[in-house]
Design a protein around this nucleic acid. Structure first.
Lengths: 316, 316
DNA sequence: TCGAATGAAGAACATATGATCACGAGACGC
DNA sequence: GCGTCTCGTGATCATATGTTCTTCATTCGA
């Protein structure tokens, strides 16, 4: 699915040319052939440059509406769970929901993040996708990234694509360790404390929501086992946020697993003024609903079908 | 030229549909026909909706680059005049520069303005064009507009297109009055003071730059006469910002005309943290250069040819 | 030094898109 | 009631765009 990230960035020279082409094309309404003539390049080349520009995020189409598209659902979600904001993107049957959510999330942040702000991020495919799309914006606006949990490798994908490297702060620890005592020791480390403190001061956080399902990223990346998940499920877990599991009402469970996590807990997370959750898919409906009930986030980005399902399951 | 602003806004219902279509088209990469099938609309209709969406600014293509396109020129301008930022958009011979500058300016602000901020604006075609394009962004982000000068009608065009009306504060006075004493009296009025105070507290200002040429908006709209301009020119005026004329070095001239203006003076303007000037065209080269020298603004948005000319005239 | 592999570039084609035209429905004045 | 006018709609066609295939050059390894 992921068509690879290709080259990470352009030569500044290429970027200049590309900007110019994009400007001619999108703002001046010249055709690709006209641009080609003007710049002495073949039409084909222009076409390819534009495609590249779009894929790399240099050219970005913004839909300038307060909502992604589904007004009624958004209003309902906000009302039900006291969210500051909800974004519901139009349905698209059987499609790559993650990519679309990532797009929506990146769009959300493009409109909010300001110069030199700090963005705390969790992990998960959606979050990483959003970060990739945001890469240029982040570097131009001088945004610092900080991870909410340990587990460096889980973040690499989202972080690598920019030359933002100077401003990325990852908690230098695994996401889960073998024993509570180890977690405690790590959390007492100076470098770890520093980053976690930084994360707590962020103005925005972007998180995913995990379902308690076998396809969960947590299992896929080896941080947890199916057996553990089975246990969690028996104890009432319906979802997790940054590795912390909660039940149907959004109440955090008391699991030994949690004590072996390195990362912010949900109470600390809630201190961040704007916690944006991006998640969707049939499997995650319960997890999202419960997370919303528990007020673990205040902005939700999801898709039409999921929003519908969340709301429908409500009267229970 | 101005193809009319058509309807000002959509029905919320139409907007929802349009957002959806735009999302399918631009983010999901469906073809217009596919969208048509899915929504039971003719392909043609989708095509027209998209066009409408683009024209109305619901769909906006953002070129996500720190510069509009001409890196070298931007760097040079910044360096020469100590600007915080310069944006130079690619040349386009003999074209509607104003529209393009307006586009660039709106893009600039879309990336900066944040929720509930206040934007102070001057007048001029470029500024009004930018405001029109920004209309939706302004209303969604709850941006307040405040005028930097009197002359209500000059602002209407830029302000009318949004339903932002609740947040627009215009100085309730003419731009120029017949006599200094009248200006003083007006400037002592409570309502006028209120708005001007508001303007001074804005974080961003968007201004145009006027040339001392017969086509100037000031003359066109009857606020000044050719004779006056001739006089100004003789006294060394090369340009004006919000009606205040300055000479080649950017020093404000001591003209009786200034004392009949109702609006902020350039020293007050300079107190605004981010003063963005958008202007271009052969006639305005000297005016822009001098304005930059006088540090009357700290962000400049112009076009390639003008930037070139500004820089070339420099060694003098 | 040769050959294979990779990537850029263009040609030809298929498809998507937007422009123009023609039609029909309602609005309005007569 | 009738003509006329405007607006929205769909049909047709020219054009713009993207895709696929082929060619060519360049790089890397043997």
């Amino acid at each position: 699915m992921s068509e690879g990230t290709d080259d990470l960035a352009f030569e500044p020279q290429e970027e200049e040319l590309l900007s110019r082409v994009a400007w001619y094309y999108y703002h001046d309404g010249l055709t690709q052939s006209e641009i080609g003539e003007r710049l002495n390049l073949s039409r084909i080349k222009i076409s390819r440059m534009l495609e590249r520009g779009r894929r790399m995020g240099l050219i970005h189409v913004h839909i300038n509406s307060s909502y992604g598209g589904c007004f009624a659902l958004e209003a309902r979600l906000q009302e039900l769970y006291g969210l500051d904001e909800a974004r519901v993107i139009p349905a698209q049957d059987g499609e790559i929901i993650i990519e679309r959510l990532a797009e929506a999330a990146s769009q959300y942040f493009m409109g909010r993040l300001q110069e030199a702000e700090m963005l705390a991020v969790g992990w998960g495919a959606t979050v990483m996708g959003a970060l990739q799309r945001l890469a240029r914006t982040l570097s131009y606006r001088n945004i610092s990234l900080v991870s909410l949990t340990g587990g460096v490798s889980a973040y690499i994908e989202g972080v690598a694509s920019g030359r933002t490297s100077q401003n990325v702060h990852l908690i230098p620890a695994p996401l889960v360790v073998s024993h509570e005592s180890v977690a405690d020791a790590i959390k007492a480390e100076r470098h770890v404390i520093d980053v976690m403190t930084m994360a707590k001061t962020a103005n925005y956080a972007l998180i995913g929501i995990g379902a308690v399902a076998d396809e969960a990223t947590l299992i896929g990346s080896g941080y947890a086992t199916r057996q553990q998940f089975e246990t969690f499920r028996r104890q009432g877990a319906v979802g997790d946020i940054v590795g912390v599991f909660y039940d149907q009402t959004g109440t955090v469970l008391d699991l030994p697993f949690h004590r072996t996590l390195v990362g912010l807990d949900l109470d600390s997370l809630r201190q961040i003024p704007h916690v944006v959750a991006a998640a969707g898919g049939a499997k995650k409906v319960d997890a999202i609903r419960a997370g919303a009930k528990g007020r673990h986030f205040n902005v939700l980005i999801t898709d039409e079908a999921t929003a519908q399902a969340i709301i429908e399951g409500e009267p229970s």
